[in-house]
Design a protein around this nucleic acid. Structure first.
Lengths: 193, 193
DNA sequence: CCTAAATGGGACAATCATGTCTCACACACA
DNA sequence: TGTGTGTGAGACATGATTGTCCCATTTAGG
């Protein structure tokens, strides 16, 4: 069994159960527990490798996007398309305490969040996003929806080929028909007007 | 320490770390571990009580909405407003295996999902949601965004009073300016055209 | 065929969380 | 003051998980 195969099995198991034991992962990989430990001396090593691989895959996918020939919105569409299949690891990334404690991972993660923030600013500048929406919320929504899309696909609730488009559409347009009347039904109790 | 106080502490700890130990929860509550066990003989009892309380709070909040005097979209706005503050428990609800195994919880949860599905169908009927979007995706997006909103508030990234409105806006309108041109930037590679 | 590396399986100690129990103590109340 | 209830602290047994080690077997390659 190759190192990559073990990581794939680990990804599958941990996506279903973030607290899964090494024995579960070894079983999923069809491998002895000792073999798993030969490749990853520690559970933490395995998690770290998994997270770093995910971050690297995201980097790889996004760096292949011809940024200079596309609008910021199109770049985001490409990014969403690329990372929805990685949604599982994307998530237990947030629930693993290791992420916040490991400086290498934290640096890579923060950098990606910053890059996403820059892209969102560019989208606001080109008019494809509303300046009134906090960038932090855009980031949070993308993160949440990417995971939701992966999960929906995993459940069978949404077809794999539709997931990224739905996610992107939700972010860019929302689920409404873009009828302005439907977007502010609560004038009487709105928190800011 | 009251039973409710223990549950609040448990909710806070488990939101941060779904795998937290009873000792962590007792510490958060400022109480001895034995006292925690006196109120909840089992970790599972505690989780179950927590989940049932959350489901009950959601029921309570939604049943106070004057359904017959509001549009379906307005009802959803009220629901979002009501459940965003419960977002934390809303989430580890999905990650706890107990939820799926306990028939009482599963029944209540499924019923709420069904009710939300009905509401979404009503929104499609009244034209406030696009029929082309699968109901399952609407449900998934609401679920994901409600948790994201709670988390953003918890992080301090978004003001508490804005969270529900941002969530609702994201669902109803999306983050774009409702300019049709910005919602389909990938004609050349779209998966369905 | 022979050798070396990798594997599977299992034994093992150590650690940790769970759940039970006991005991001393504080606080309320009569 | 005396009593009873609830609490905090800690000991304890149990089971699960981690990480180490060993050995027999398999597999690849010369």
């Amino acid at each position: 069994m190759t190192r990559q195969g073990l990581m794939n099995a680990a990804g599958a198991v941990l996506a279903r159960n973030p607290g899964a034991a090494m024995a579960d992962i070894a079983k999923e990989a069809g491998v002895g527990r000792a073999t798993l430990y030969r490749h990853f001396p520690t559970r933490e090593d395995l998690i770290r490798a998994l997270v770093l691989e995910s971050l690297h895959q995201i980097d790889e996918a996004t760096q292949q996007i011809p940024v200079d020939r596309l609008s910021a919105a199109q770049v985001l569409a490409e990014i969403v398309e690329a990372i929805v299949p990685l949604g599982d690891r994307f998530r237990f990334l947030s629930s693993e305490p290791i992420v916040l404690n490991d400086p290498e991972i934290k640096a890579a993660y923060d950098r990606q969040l910053d890059e996403l923030g820059d892209l969102i600013e560019a989208m606001k500048a080109e008019g494809s996003l509303d300046r009134a929406v906090p960038t932090a919320w855009v980031v949070a929504a993308i993160d949440a929806l990417v995971y939701a899309a992966w999960h929906a696909v995993d459940d069978g609730a949404v077809a794999r080929r539709d997931a990224a488009a739905l996610t992107f559409r939700t972010i860019m347009q929302g689920l409404g028909l873009a009828d302005p009347a439907s977007t502010s039904p609560r004038q009487g109790r709105s928190s800011k007007t």
